[in-house]
Amino acid sequence: MQKIMITGAAGQLGLALHRLLRDDKQYKLFRTDAFATEDGMVKALDITNEAAVNDYISENKPDIIINCAAMTAVDLCESEEEKAYRINALGPKYLAMAAEITGAKLVHVSTDYVFDGLASSPYIESDATNPISVYGTTKLEGEKFVQEYCKKYYILRTAWVYGEGKNFVKTMLRLAEQNSKVRVVADQYGTPTSALELARAILFIMNTESYGIYHATCEGSTNWYEFAVTIFKEAGKNVEVEAITSEQYPTPAKRPMYSILENRAFHQRHGYYMKEWTDAFREYMRELNS
Score class of each variant (00 low, 15 high):
Thr37Ile: 05
Gln268Ser: 14
Thr7Pro: 00
Asn223Phe: 02
Ala51His: 09
Ser259Gln: 15
Gly165Gln: 04
Tyr123Trp: 04
Tyr123His: 01
Tyr56Asp: 04
Ala253Leu: 08
Lys61Phe: 05
Ile66Gln: 00
Ile66His: 00
Leu29Lys: 03
Gln12Ile: 15
Arg86Gly: 14
Met71Trp: 11
Ile4Thr: 06
Gly220Gln: 01
Met206Ser: 06
Phe232Lys: 10
Lys237His: 06
Ile231Glu: 05
Tyr113Thr: 08
Ser120Gly: 04
Arg200Asn: 12
Tyr272Trp: 07
Thr193Glu: 01
Gln268Val: 12
His215Tyr: 02
Ala186Ile: 03
Tyr162Arg: 06
Ala128Met: 03
Glu242Met: 11
Tyr153Phe: 05
Tyr249Asn: 15
Gly236Gln: 01
Asp75Asn: 15
Leu156Met: 05
Lys275Gly: 07
Lys166Tyr: 14
Asp187Ala: 00
Ala186His: 07
Thr102Ala: 08
Ile47Gly: 07
Val184Asn: 02
Leu45Ala: 06
Glu197Asn: 08
Leu76Cys: 09
Arg255Met: 10
Lys43Gly: 02
Ala51Leu: 14
Ser79Lys: 14
His18Cys: 07
Leu261Val: 07
Pro256Trp: 05
Val109Trp: 05
Glu125Tyr: 02
Arg174Gln: 15
Cys218Thr: 12
Asp127Gln: 04
Arg200Gln: 15
Ile231Met: 04
Phe145Glu: 03
Ala265Lys: 15
Val182Ser: 10
Glu59Phe: 09
Gly14Cys: 10
Tyr225Met: 06
Leu118Arg: 13
Gly142Tyr: 01
Cys68Ser: 11
Ile202Lys: 00
Phe168Trp: 13
Tyr56Pro: 06
Val185Gly: 08
Asp279Thr: 14
Gly91Ala: 07
Leu196His: 14
Asn49Thr: 03
Gly103Pro: 01
Thr138Trp: 01
Val229Cys: 13
Gly40Lys: 06
Tyr249Pro: 01
Lys144Ile: 02
Leu45Gln: 05
Ala44Lys: 13
Pro192Gly: 02
Lys93Glu: 10
Glu141Ile: 07
Arg86Thr: 07
Gly271Thr: 11
Phe266Asp: 00
Asn130Trp: 04
Ser120Lys: 14
Leu106Ile: 11
Leu288Lys: 07
Arg174Ala: 14
Asn54Asp: 13
Thr72Glu: 07
Ile260Thr: 09
Thr230Lys: 15
His18Phe: 15
Tyr149His: 15
Lys237Pro: 00
Met1Lys: 13
Lys170Cys: 03
Gln178Pro: 00
Pro192Glu: 03
Thr111His: 01
Ala36Ser: 11
Lys275Ile: 06
Leu15Met: 11
Asp39Thr: 05
Glu164Lys: 15
Glu59Leu: 09
Asn289Gln: 15
Thr102Glu: 12
Val169Asn: 09
Gly117Lys: 01
Arg22Leu: 09
Asp112Tyr: 03
Asp279Arg: 13
Asp127Ile: 04
Asn60Met: 13
Lys3Glu: 13
Ala119Cys: 12
Val185Trp: 03
Thr32Lys: 11
Val241Lys: 04
Glu247Tyr: 11
Asp112Gly: 10
